[in-house]
Nucleic acid binder design. Structure first.
Length: 570
RNA sequence: CGGGCCGUAGCGCAGUCUGGUAGCGCGCUUGACUGGGGGUCAAGAGGUCGCGGGUUCAAGUCCCGCCGGCCCGACCA
C-alpha cells in the first residue's frame, strides 16, 4: 500500500469526547470512527488490525480442534422462549418485528442457536465437539462508553463445547483455558484469570480473563508473587493483627460535637484512629433492618453481603429510616445493646476490645467497647473489600488491587441449553442423555482496544508486530528526489515480496509530518530513506516501541528488516 | 434510569450572560520558497450555528419542546 493513495484519516488533536487512551488514539490515528453511541466503524487500518486479532484467535481455536460456523445474528422469538431468556434477559436484548409482526431478536450470544443445531448430534460417538464463529453481537448497553471498550454492537468469537458428561466438559473447558492463554499471549496482553460469577449465563463455574488498565471497569486483587487473583467482589486478604489495650469495664459515652465521619473522629482530640472504630451501616434486607459492622477504616464489599445473605432485595437504608430506627443519623450510629436488630459483623472485628462507636445520639460516641461483650453479633461474615497493599491470602506477600478490562470469559454451562433445545445423544447403553455444554467468548474490538491501552506512549500507538495494521512503514523523506524515490520503491518491493505487511509513505509531505504520523499510527518498524543516509549508502531503521535506531547498509536493509519482523511474529 | 457537562466549518474551540454583517487555530485547495520531527509567505474554498416551534423590526444568542453526544453513578452475558 502507498500512503499517498490510502485512507488514513489522522487527526492532529485528540477528539473532544474521548477519555480513554485507546479511544483517543484509535480515533486520532484513523482506525475507527463513531457512527452513534456504542457503534463504531472500522476504517481500513482498524479493520486490518482486527483481522489480525481474528486470525490469531482462529488459529488457536483450530489448534484445539474447533470447527468454524457462521450463524445468523437475527433470531426468532421462539428459540429464546425455549431457553427462558426471552423473558429473563430484559432490556439488554434488541428486539424487533418483521412485516408480519413476528418477534425477532438481534443475538447477544448464541447458546440457543448452537444448541439447536447440536440437536442433530445423535450418538456419544460424535462427541466431543467444539464449534465456534466470529459474529456480530448486539447488546443494548445502558451506557456505552470508552470508545471500543463498551459498545452495543461488536464482533465476538464465541465457541461452544458439547460433551457426554462433566468430565468431558472439564476437558473441553481446560482446552479453552489453554487456548485463551495462548491467544492473549500472542495478542501481547498480560491476561490474569479470575473466578467470576456467571450472571445470566447460568451454569456454575466461570473464569474471566482480565488485563490491567486504567480504562477498565472491574477491580481485581492480584498477587504478583504467587499469582493469586480474584475479583474484589470475592477477594480476601490477610491483615496485620491489631493490639488492643485492656479497655474499660463498660462502654463510656463521650461528646463528639460535629463528628460525622470516621475521619472526623480520627482527627478529634480524644477520638480514635480508623482501625479502633466500628463503622455501623444500616441496610434494608427484604424490608427488615439489618446492621452491618466493619472496622472504621474498612470498606464494605456490597456484593459479598448480597452473596452471603439470602434475600430478594438488599439496599442501604434512607436517612429518614435510620433516624427512626436508631434515634440518630449516620455519624453517630452504633450496635451496642441492640439485641432487637439483626447485627452482622465483619470478621476483622472479632475479638476486638477498646473500640469506639456511635452512641445512637447525635454528637455522642461510646469508647471502651468490647465487641464480643457489648455487641449482640448474630453473624460473623467476610464483608470487607480488600485494598491495595494488603496481604495475599495465599502467600502473605502484598498484592495489588487495580482496574482491569475483561477480555475473555469462559463458562461451564451444564445442560440448561441442551435440555431446552432437545440436544441429547445416546450413550453406550442406548440411554438418551442431554449434552453437557460450555461456552467461551472473546470480544474482538475490546481486545483491540486493550492492546492499545497496553501499548502506547505520548506520541501514539506502539503496535506489537502481531496485530499491527502494517509491520513496516518505509518513509521516503524526499519523494521527488529520484534516488530517494527509487531506493524507497525498491525496498518496498523487496519487503512486500518477502511477505511483510508494508506501507510506503510516498506522500509529498514534510519529513516531520510523516514521522509524527508514523508514530501516531504506531507501525512497529520505520525505515527512513533520505538523501543524507543514501550519501553514506545507509537507511535508518527505528523500532517504535523503544525508539531504538540503527543504520543499515542499503543492500542489507531488506534482509535485516525481514529478520527483525519475522523474529517478533508469533 | 438518576446526576452533571456539551452540540457553531473536516478536527479543536471562541462568540450565547448583555439579540444587530458568523469568527480563530489546525486541516483542506492553488502557487512560490522550503525539505531528517506537525516549516514560511501569498491567494482561496468550506457553515441549514443539532432539529422544530415561539418572542422580536432583527435570534448562534431569549423562551418552549425534542434529538444527539460525553462524563459520574446504577446496571453489565
Amino acid at each position: 500500500m502507498r500512503w499517498s493513495s490510502a485512507f488514513i484519516p489522522t487527526l492532529r488533536d485528540d477528539p473532544a469526547d474521548a477519555e480513554a487512551a485507546s479511544h483517543k488514539l484509535l480515533v486520532r490515528a484513523g482506525f475507527v470512527r463513531q457512527l452513534m453511541a456504542g457503534h463504531y466503524s472500522l476504517t481500513p487500518l482498524g479493520f486490518r488490525s482486527l483481522r489480525k486479532v481474528e486470525g490469531i484467535i482462529r488459529e488457536e481455536m483450530d489448534r484445539i480442534g474447533a470447527q468454524e460456523f457462521r450463524l445468523p445474528c437475527m433470531h426468532p422469538r421462539e428459540i429464546w422462549e425455549r431457553s427462558g431468556r426471552w423473558d429473563s434477559v430484559g432490556e439488554e436484548m434488541f428486539r424487533l418485528k418483521d412485516r408480519k409482526q413476528a418477534d425477532m431478536v438481534l443475538g447477544m450470544t448464541h447458546e440457543e442457536i448452537f444448541a439447536h443445531h447440536a440437536a442433530e448430534l445423535r450418538s456419544y460417538k460424535s462427541l466431543p465437539q467444539i464449534w465456534y464463529q466470529f459474529q456480530t453481537k448486539f447488546r443494548d448497553e445502558a451506557r456505552p462508553k470508552s470508545g471500543l471498550l463498551r459498545v452495543r454492537e461488536f464482533t465476538m468469537k464465541d465457541s461452544y463445547s458439547f460433551d457426554l458428561d462433566d468430565a468431558g466438559l472439564d476437558a473441553s473447558f481446560d482446552r479453552h483455558f489453554e487456548a485463551y492463554r495462548r491467544i492473549f499471549k500472542r495478542l501481547g496482553l498480560e491476561a490474569v484469570a479470575v473466578e467470576a460469577s456467571s450472571g445470566v449465563m447460568g451454569g456454575n463455574t466461570s473464569i474471566e480473563f482480565m488485563v490491567r488498565s486504567e480504562a477498565g471497569e472491574d477491580w481485581i486483587a492480584h498477587c504478583a508473587k504467587c499469582g493469586y487473583a480474584a475479583n474484589v467482589e470475592k477477594a480476601q486478604s490477610v491483615l496485620p493483627p491489631v493490639e488492643d489495650g485492656p479497655g474499660l469495664a463498660a462502654p463510656e459515652k463521650f461528646p463528639t460535637p460535629g463528628v460525622k465521619t470516621i475521619d472526623d473522629l480520627a482527627k478529634m482530640d480524644g477520638g480514635a484512629p480508623g482501625e479502633r472504630q466500628i463503622k455501623t451501616l444500616v441496610f434494608a434486607v427484604d424490608d427488615k433492618n439489618v446492621l452491618v459492622l466493619l472496622r472504621g477504616d474498612h470498606k464494605l464489599a456490597e456484593q459479598k453481603l448480597v452473596d452471603q445473605v439470602e434475600a430478594q432485595s438488599i439496599r442501604p437504608a434512607e436517612p429518614g429510616e435510620i433516624k427512626r430506627l436508631m434515634g440518630a443519623l449516620p455519624g453517630s450510629l452504633g450496635a451496642v445493646g441492640r439485641d432487637d436488630l439483626f447485627v452482622i459483623a465483619d470478621e476483622a472485628l472479632r475479638g476486638r476490645r477498646d473500640m469506639v462507636t456511635g452512641a445512637n445520639e447525635d454528637g455522642f460516641h461510646l469508647r471502651g467497647v468490647d465487641v464480643e461483650r457489648d455487641v449482640p453479633v448474630k453473624a460473623w461474615l467476610d464483608l470487607r473489600e480488600v485494598a491495595d497493599g494488603e496481604g495475599c491470602p495465599a502467600c502473605q506477600a502484598p498484592f495489588s488491587v487495580h482496574k482491569t478490562i475483561e477480555i475473555g470469559h469462559i463458562f461451564k454451562l451444564g445442560t440448561k441449553y441442551s435440555v431446552a433445545m432437545g440436544a441429547s445423544v445416546q450413550d453406550e447403553k442406548g440411554a438418551s442423555v442431554p449434552i453437557v455444554m460450555g461456552s467461551y467468548g472473546i470480544g474482538l474490538e475490546r481486545n483491540l482496544a486493550a492492546i492499545v491501552e497496553a501499548n502506547h506512549d505520548a506520541n501514539g500507538i506502539c503496535w506489537p508486530v502481531n496485530t499491527a495494521p502494517y509491520e513496516v512503514v518505509v518513509t521516503v523523506v524526499k519523494p521527488d528526489d529520484v534516488e530517494c524515490h527509487e531506493a524507497g520503491e525498491q525496498l518496498y518491493d523487496k519487503l512486500a515480496k518477502a511477505g511483510l505487511d508494508v506501507i510506503l509513505d510516498d506522500r509529498d509531505e514534510r519529513p516531520g509530518v510523516k514521522f509524527k504520523d508514523a508514530d501516531l499510527v504506531g507501525f512497529p518498524y520505520r525505515v527512513t530513506i533520505g538523501p543524507k543516509g543514501l550519501e553514506k549508502g545507509v537507511v535508518e531503521l527505528v523500532r517504535r516501541r523503544d525508539g531504538q535506531k540503527s543504520e543499515v547498509a542499503v543492500e542489507h536493509a531488506a534482509e535485516t528488516i525481514v529478520e527483525a519482523v519475522l523474529d517478533e511474529r508469533s
